[in-house]
C-alpha cells in the first residue's frame, strides 16, 4: 500500500518557506524514487552504456584489433553459425550451465537449510563452506588444475590408493566427458557458497511464526519446507538463480585455465571462444558476435523472470 501524498502533506512536512517547498518536493514518491536511483544511472550510463553500445556495434562490423571496421550487418552472426566449433560451443554452454546450475540450486538450498540450523560450531562450518568463494578464482582454478594434472593428480593418486580407480586413473582434462565433468565440478565448488549464503540470508528473513503456525497445523519437516520455506524464499531464490545463470553462462576463468576449450573444443564456452577468436585471433567483430550471441535470449529470460519477481 503506497502512502498517498495526502498523508504526507498533512503530517510529515512541517515548516514553510523555500526549504519547506524543497522538502515537500523531495518527499514526493516519484521525486524521491528518481533521486535515489540517479547515481546508479549516471554511473551505468557513463561507464557501461558506451562500452555496451560499442560491443553491439563491434558485433555488427568487421572490426579488427588495431584497425577500423565497417558495418556489415549480421554477417558475423551468419559466419559463426556456419562454423561447427561455434555450434559445439553453444551445446557445451547449455550442458555446462544446465548441469552446474541444477547442482548449485539443489545443493545450495539443501546446504542453506543445514547451515540455518542451530548447531554448535556452526560459525566454523559456515566459514569453511564459504571458503571456495573467498579464494581468488584465478588462483584456486590453478590449484584445481594441479589436482587434475596428468602426472601428479592428487585425485587419481588418492582414488587409486583407496581402490576406487584403476591405474592410471581418468585422463581428466583429455577426454571430453571427464573434462566437462571437471569444469562443472570446479564451477559448482566455486558457486555453491554464493547460493548457500544468499539463500541462508533469505531463510533468516522468514519470521519464525510461520513455522510455528505450520507446526501447530501438524506439518512435518517436508511440509514446512514445501509450504512455508519455499514460497517465502522465492524472491531471493529467483534473483540468485538469475544471477547465477548469467555468471555460469559467461564463465571464463575455469575453462580458460583448465582446458583452454579442449579437448577438441568440447569445453569451449562463449567467453573462452570469444576470447580466442576476438583477442588472440584479432577478429573483434566475430568475437563480439560470439559473446553477444546469447544476449537476446538471455534478455528475454531476464525480462520474464523480472516480471515474475516483481509480481511477488
Amino acid at each position: 500500500m503506497a502512502v498517498g501524498p495526502g498523508v504526507l502533506d498533512a503530517t510529515a512536512v512541517t515548516g514553510g518557506g523555500r526549504l519547506g517547498r524543497v522538502r515537500r518536493w523531495w518527499e514526493q514518491e516519484h521525486v524521491f524514487g528518481y533521486g535515489l536511483i540517479l547515481p546508479a544511472l549516471v554511473l551505468l550510463a557513463c561507464l557501461v552504456a558506451y562500452p555496451f553500445l560499442m560491443a553491439v556495434y563491434l558485433s555488427l562490423s568487421d572490426y579488427w584489433v588495431g584497425s577500423p571496421g565497417r558495418f556489415v550487418g549480421l554477417a558475423n552472426f551468419r559466419e559463426i553459425l556456419g562454423n561447427d566449433v561455434f555450434r559445439q560451443t553453444v551445446r557445451n554452454s547449455f550442458v555446462f550451465t544446465g548441469i552446474a546450475l541444477t547442482l548449485k540450486t539443489v545443493l545450495g538450498v539443501w546446504l542453506a537449510l543445514l547451515l540455518a540450523r542451530n548447531l554448535s560450531g556452526k560459525r566454523l562450518i559456515r566459514g569453511a563452506v564459504l571458503l571456495p568463494f573467498v579464494i581468488p578464482t584465478a588462483l584456486s582454478t590453478l590449484g584445481w588444475w594441479w589436482m587434475f594434472d596428468s602426472l601428479y593428480s592428487v585425485v587419481n593418486w588418492t582414488g587409486i590408493r583407496l581402490g576406487l580407480l584403476n591405474p592410471p586413473g581418468p585422463n581428466w582434462l583429455g577426454v571430453p566427458a571427464y573434462a566437462m565433468a571437471a569444469v562443472i565440478a570446479v564451477n559448482v565448488w566455486r558457486g555453491l557458497p554464493f547460493f548457500a549464503i544468499t539463500v541462508l540470508a533469505g531463510l533468516v528473513a522468514i519470521p519464525r511464526e510461520h513455522y510455528e503456525a505450520a507446526e501447530v497445523d501438524g506439518a512435518g519437516a517436508w511440509g514446512r519446507f514445501r509450504y512455508v520455506t519455499l514460497p517465502l524464499l522465492r524472491p531471493v531464490l529467483a534473483v540468485v538463480i538469475l544471477f547465477s545463470t548469467i555468471f555460469t553462462f559467461s564463465d571464463f576463468n575455469i575453462v580458460y585455465v583448465l582446458t583452454r576449450g579442449g579437448p577438441v573444443n568440447t569445453t569451449h564456452l562463449f567467453a573462452t571462444l570469444a576470447y580466442q577468436v576476438g583477442l588472440q585471433g584479432g577478429n573483434l567483430g566475430q568475437g563480439a558476435a560470439i559473446s553477444l550471441f546469447l544476449f537476446p535470449m538471455l534478455g528475454v529470460v531476464v525480462f520474464l523472470q523480472l516480471r515474475y519477481i516483481r509480481r511477488e
Partner: peptide, 24 residues
C-alpha cells in the same frame, strides 16, 4: 517506491549485467 518507469529502470540496470566482460 512507485513512480513512472520504475520497471524500465530496473530492467535497464539489470540488462547491463548481461554484457560479457570478456570484451567489455
Amino acid at each position: 517506491l512507485r513512480f513512472a518507469g520504475v520497471g524500465g529502470f530496473g530492467t535497464a540496470v539489470f540488462i547491463t549485467y548481461l554484457v560479457p566482460p570478456t570484451l567489455l
